[in-house]
Each structure stands twice: as C-alpha cells, then as structure tokens.
Design a protein around this nucleic acid. Structure first.
Lengths: 208, 208
DNA sequence: GCCATATTCTATATTCGATTAAACACACCC
DNA sequence: GGGTGTGTTTAATCGAATATAGAATATGGC
C-alpha cells in the first residue's frame, strides 16, 4: 500500500531509499500536464515518462485526479514559497522598488527553472474541475496576495503612476511574467538578460 | 453532404439561409475549446452548445480534428485581420507610438470581445498536435510579424529603451495582453479602462 | 399535396483509457 | 530455503467518446 497519499511540500527526494518512484511519477505528471493539458494527460504517458507500467501509479496515488491535484498543489506551493523566501532574504530596509524587482526575478527564475510544474499551473490553472484545482488555487490566491502587497507598498510610497489601477497593473505584470513560460527557452540567451529586461519593463510600466 | 469542408475567412453568417448550423457549431466549438482545452473538448459538449445531436457535426465537418483545426485557423486569421485593419485605419502620418497604442487596443478588444476564439487560441496555441495547429500557427506567426514591425518602428525612431531587446520586449508585451483573457471580465469595469491602463503601461515599459 | 434533396436523428460498432484483480519478483529476516 | 512485505507487472473489466449506418424528418419547388 502507498506510504503516503496526500503529502505536503517536504523534499520528496530524500525519502525511503528504494522508492523515489513516487517523485518520478510526480515529475512525469508535471511534464505531461504541461505539454498536453489536464484532459490530455494520459496515465500511460506519465507511466512511460517515469519508466513504469501504468497500473504502478495506483500504488502511490489513489487515482489520476489525485496525482494531478498533487502536481498542481506542490507546484503552486513551491512557487509561493520561493517568492516568500526571496523577499525574506532582502534587508529590512529594502525599498518597494527593490522588492518588486526581486519578485520579478524570483517569479521568472522559478518559472523557467522548475518549468514543468510552472507550465502545468499556468496552462491549467483556470481550466480544472473544481475539486482538482481547489488546493492549488488557494496557493495561487496566496501568491497573488503577496503581489497585491508589493504593489500596495509601491503605491503608498507614491511610486505607482496615477493611471494604473493597482489590481489591473498587478495582473498585467503577472501576465507578462507568466507568459514567458510559453515562449522563452534557454537558446534565446542567458536567463539573466530576460530577467533584467523584465525588471526594467515592469518598473517603468508602474512608476511615475 | 457538407457544402464545404475547409473554408476560409468569409463571413459565414450570410450563407444559405437555412443552415447557419455550421457556424453555430464553429462558435460552439470555440467556446468549449476555450473552456476545456483541446483534449477536453468533447463532440457531445459542442453538440449540446449548438443544440444538435453529436453525429450532426459530421454532416458539416469530416472529423473532430477538422472542426477544431478550423476554429483555430479562423480565430487566428480574424485576430490578424482585426489588427491589420485597425492599423490601416490610422492616418498615414501616425507615429510609431500611435501605432503601438492602436495595436494594444485592437488586441485587447478582439481578445475580450470575440473572446471564445481568442481564448481558444491563447490557451491551446502551443499544445496542439502538429497537424491541427499548423495553419493556425502560421497565422499567429504573421500576427507576430506585425508586432515585430511595430516594435522595430519604435526602435528606429529612437523610442525604444536601450535595455529592451526588441524580441523580448515584444513577447513581454504580448504576454501581458494575452493573459488578460485569463482574468479580465466585464464586471471589473468597462473595457475602456483596461485598455487605457494597458496602453499606458506598455508604452512606459518600452519608451526611454 | 407530392417529390427530391438537405438536414438531423437513433441506434451501433469500435477504440481508447482508467481502474481493479491477481500474479510475480525481490529483498530481508530468521 | 520458507515467510512476509514492498513494489511492480500482466490480464481483465468497464465506461466513455469518436465515428458510421441507416432511418426519419424537414424544407423548398412545383
């Protein structure tokens, strides 16, 4: 029987020596999900990617939906944690501009480095059956809250242009960043260049 | 037998009086495609949306994939045509800034007004079987070319900031606009406000 | 009102994919 | 060198979805 069914964000890699299969399956599911979308994700594809037979999946996850649900949740939680950590690492006197800049970098790095999970979330976030998306959407809402705060800080220090309604500005910025998962690939050049350009564009789009 | 199988962009509405069924099916397919994604699009859902039984679809389209392929192509072609028309309507002496501004409005309006087709394209563009996406992707490439030109015009008149690589800047802007399909809805306020904010942010993000 | 054609429906064949059942392998323990 | 538990496989089940066949119904011309 499965060792655990709905687990949290702990580092899956270091579990019981023998079976990192569970983690391989999760990664494989993220990959397939990113490529084919929720409805197009076949257990047989996941199994092939993870080098097992399809029914083996049921040893670790009670159903296809549970597996997908976990990919979405783990991916969203990791994204949120990554941003939280990046902001926490800033000195206490960092300016709102510094914080936004850091957030842009954190978002892009995470998105483009853990890109299967990020793509899975970005592509499927809004088109999942309620039950499958619930936990993930809650994480995403938390992620949005962080950004809401960042924009509010900018505004309260007079650094948000008057013609930018905070909620709209936030979504436009997040859209620009999310979409990078659709088009960016390493052959376009080092990620650092993209990050610098994005930071510059984001800040110029928001500041007076 | 079907009157036409793979048709072009002509106004479908004004064909033979009796059967606007073909167009209803196309619209229904766009709607379902936008909501559920390529793999999640069931003929039965399309049929229900168009108020026919599923097998009736085969009277108009030879297969599920042909129908979807046409939604994608028609949608992409319409988007491109809408942008082309909007730019052509500008006076000959319109500045590069005017032209970008117009393009932002055209993109958003089309996306949010004909939103089923646009959402279908935005959500499924990169995750279609090669054969299904081919014609649509060609249209989208053409669409991108227009934007490439717009950015180049901006650059050649010294209105593009030096730290913005044109290709990256273009994709970031398009991402911001595309993503609106995911979050914007009329209850957030009139579309005009969104457009003005987006125009302002886009131009500030690009100009010196 | 009647025919011919256009359109749509009611079955039905067939295929594909999730899930379950049951068997197999293999390690470790004694 | 048999027994137990953990992973994993192959074989069987079952429902859902595309597509086909052929019957049934509209519709327009006369």
């Amino acid at each position: 029987m499965p060792q655990r069914t709905t687990d949290t964000t702990e580092p899956e890699s270091s579990g019981p020596k023998s079976s990192r299969t569970r983690e391989r399956l999760l990664d494989a599911a993220a990959l397939v999900l990113a490529r084919k979308g929720f409805a197009g994700t076949r257990l047989s594809d996941i199994a092939e990617e993870a080098a097992v037979q399809a029914p083996a999946i049921y040893y670790y996850y009670p159903s296809r939906e549970d597996l997908i649900e976990e990919v979405m949740f783990v991916g969203a939680a990791a994204m949120r944690a990554h941003l939280t950590d990046a902001l926490a690492a800033l000195p206490a006197n960092a300016t709102p501009v510094d914080r936004i800049s850091t957030a842009v970098e954190a978002h892009l790095r995470h998105e483009l480095e853990i890109s299967d999970y990020a793509k899975a979330i970005i592509r499927n976030g809004n088109q999942l059956p309620e039950q499958v998306g619930r936990r993930a959407l809650a994480e995403i809402a938390g992620y949005n809250d962080i950004w809401r705060t960042l924009v509010a800080e900018l505004e309260s220090t007079g650094q948000l242009r008057a013609d930018v309604e905070p909620a709209v500005g936030r979504m436009i910025v997040l859209g620009a960043l999310n979409w990078a998962a659709e088009w960016w690939n390493p052959e376009r050049g080092p990620i650092g260049e993209l990050i610098r350009t994005a930071q510059s564009m984001v800040l110029h789009s928001l500041r007076p």
